[in-house]
Design a protein around this nucleic acid. Structure first.
Lengths: 239, 239
DNA sequence: GTCAACAAAAATATCGATATTAAACCGATT
DNA sequence: AATCGGTTTAATATCGATATTTTTGTTGAC
């Protein structure tokens, strides 16, 4: 006679089913770095932490397998997917390919509702960027959310479900790396100006320019991480 | 030591763990059409059929979720992913994008080992194509295998793990549609000639031509399915 | 000291049963 | 006839325990 008759909906962990809840929590913790790349994911430990059964955890982990956020080897359990600069470089190139194609298609067919959604998303993002300048730590989660919304709004009019699916997959992957950079206060970038450029070009229906700017925007994040890691290596060597 | 722990499991239904075995079998049955698009996947039924426990089936199904071969809705269980001409059209466009990019990169950096693997794969494929002409039903599984091997060999030298991953995902999806066409005896296509063209252009390192031919090759399968479905609709209307 | 063989110990994979939820049914009411 | 409520039935989601496999640790030989 345990007490859980109604699914506990505490915190950011939404999901009507227990598996979905565990899945969402786990995913967040992997993306925001709480669970570090390569870390072993013991079912017993997680089971205790989330207060659910082993099979429930197992199924949540299996889902993350499909999103390449965890790996699983034979009879040796699960781990958080490893992260490396090489992987990020590769990921970024492919994301650029997908995202720019989606953007091009969106610009080609998007109508007024699409445009106004972009305007709204850009406005919200800009507001959060201001807040971020005052309170870098506090507004960070909100910034990630709105950044994602803005990028999604840009390509929302792209008619290809598969492009959207792949984009979601790749974006999520890169979000993990981005947070790593953000948490370690990397070189300051004028992200707002970059967004503004993409925004203007998109609404002006200038495909080539929008695609070019978006591509550069995506690439810059790699540069940021590479610089960060290089600096860390130097520190490690010196200290 | 970089580890891509994704087991190859191409084709066969064996696997070290029961879950993997169930997963492989299920996947094959979905791809080859034994389990029809949209069909309900009751755990109890599958449990009995494969003689394993419910959770085992459940986990196998969850894996297929990540490959978009099954869908799952809230508390309403699993189904085989639906198939439609629209989906196939979309899928094909995106696959073209990925596969041609991978091919371009492979041609740019591939060395002699890559070339010789292509020659070997092309030879094997050609042999099977001959056999297929005599025994259309019997050699079909082998043809699928070798066709896949050939396409994979073409892009094997592409250095991007993410492109390979996406390609595998999309290729698998389209394989399901292709088998549908094959089983219904569609309009005859000179697939061999198409393969020959891609083969020649690739070994000649003519990126633009190879990419163009590969793109057309991929597109033709859509045409085949569209024609087939149109014919079926006419029959249904008439009969 | 290194290695191998083997015995605990830990972790994973798998099971069968139970609790929860959605679907099917069915009669009463408008 | 169609719709609404409540009841039964079927299916799913979840659990806790067991069977297997991997990892760890120890001892004895070389």
């Amino acid at each position: 006679m345990t007490d859980i008759a109604v699914v506990d909906r505490s915190g950011d962990t939404k999901g009507r089913t227990l598996i979905e809840a565990a899945y969402a929590t786990l995913r967040n913790e992997i993306i925001d770095g709480t669970l570090e790349p390569g870390a072993k994911l013991r079912t017993e430990e997680l089971r205790a932490r989330y207060d659910v059964s082993g099979s429930t955890i197992r199924e949540a982990l299996t889902r993350l397998l499909g999103e390449a956020l965890v790996t699983s080897e034979g009879q040796r359990g699960f781990r958080v997917a490893p992260a490396s600069l090489d992987d990020f470089r590769d990921l970024t190139e492919v994301r650029k390919l997908i995202e720019t194609e989606a953007l091009r298609q969106a610009i080609a067919v998007g109508g007024e509702p699409w445009e106004s959604e972009i305007v709204a998303a850009f406005y919200r993002l800009s507001k959060t960027e201001e807040r971020l300048r005052e309170d870098p730590a506090g507004a960070s989660a909100e910034f990630e959310q709105r950044n994602r919304d803005f990028h999604r709004a840009l390509i929302a009019a792209c008619p290809s479900p598969w492009l959207h699916r792949l984009h979601a997959l790749l974006y999520q992957q890169s979000e993990r790396y981005r947070r790593l950079v953000a948490s370690k206060r990397a070189i300051p970038r004028d992200v707002h100006a970059e967004h503004q450029g993409i925004f203007d070009a998109t609404l002006a229906r200038d495909s080539d320019l929008a695609v070019r700017l978006a591509g550069e925007h995506i690439e810059r994040s790699v540069l940021a991480l590479a610089t960060l890691l290089a600096a860390r290596d130097r520190e490690a060597a010196a200290g």
